[in-house]
Design a protein around this nucleic acid. Sequence first.
DNA 1: GTCTATAATCTGATAGAC
DNA 2: GTCTATCAGATTATAGAC
Lengths: 192, 192
Amino acid sequence: MTDKDARTRLVEGMADLLWERGYVGTSPSAVLARAGVGQGSLYHHFAGKQELAVAGIRRNADTLTRAARDALDGPGTAYERLERFLLRDRDVLRGCRIGRMTQDPDVFAAEPLRQPVADALSWVRGAIAAVIEQGQARGELVPVIAPDDLAGTILSTLQGGYVLARADHDEERFTAAVRGLLGLLKALVVTP
Amino acid sequence: MTDKDARTRLVEGMADLLWERGYVGTSPSAVLARAGVGQGSLYHHFAGKQELAVAGIRRNADTLTRAARDALDGPGTAYERLERFLLRDRDVLRGCRIGRMTQDPDVFAAEPLRQPVADALSWVRGAIAAVIEQGQARGELVPVIAPDDLAGTILSTLQGGYVLARADHDEERFTAAVRGLLGLLKALVVTP
DNA sequence: GTCTATAATCTGATAGAC
DNA sequence: GTCTATCAGATTATAGAC
């Protein structure tokens, strides 16, 4: 990590700390310590904490959307693709690096911070909805629920699963919620 | 509010600020300002910020479990009771006053802060599971999903619904997720 | 019990040397 | 570009008056 330039190390350090501690819980000095750079580099490359945080959030958003796309794309029926997405490897107790930002009061209030969070979650929701829509069009899924609504339910279950798991320090809370959701989704699968 | 004693006003002020700004985002001085009391009162009644926060979290936990019980208890089929719980009036954009605490790094790390959060969410999950179990026992719901798993899915959808709504500054994201969930739950209802 | 005064430390940012 | 030095203000807490 020390082989990269100061700017890159600052963005990576901020991205990690935003995931761990959120925006109000992250101080510029903590980022500097993690990145191993001096005060001057931060204020040379960025206007301040907020501008660096925007870059950190964008980085985390890229990681999230890439992982979602990798799981949702590829072969299989709609159910199989959703299952692959729901069961993909996750650092459950760390929570969602993007979803957690919505609880931060300063992120909620400042448009530059909130926009990339909203964009990333909307993108994932849209990708899930597309799989559902295709499944309904192909006759794999019973079309009793609007794809957008069901995509919201699926993404919400994941986001809420992180919440319950972190409350109990127990990944199983997340796994149980996903298991329940997969049970519900199976009822939509058209059996020939 | 000024007609109550300093201790009560401190707990109420802390509870409100924990909901709005979380633990790391709330300073003792902000609580003092909201409660309208001096520094001395805080450190007379509590050992410090953390002990006051424990009292604030307990207060918010009481509010949550009371509201959940009021919606889940009462007449109706299992589906009707779950629907009443899912559609109850909520201050969606403010998020869940208990669920949001799980994203706070200091709450996640400090047992005295985390325990009342875990207890409250477990209580609500158990109350939902009891309704499902009863519904399955009475033959109202198809018993294809373990009540505990499904209760986790339902509570997760709510917690995640807050996340999506706050990301977009739009209550409809929460409502859509709940609508999708109700659609899934309807498939479990036994039709005579 | 409640208040104000004080203090050590941290926060977010600027100045200016190299 | 990157660094260290510095700074005004906030944070968390203690001391002691009333």
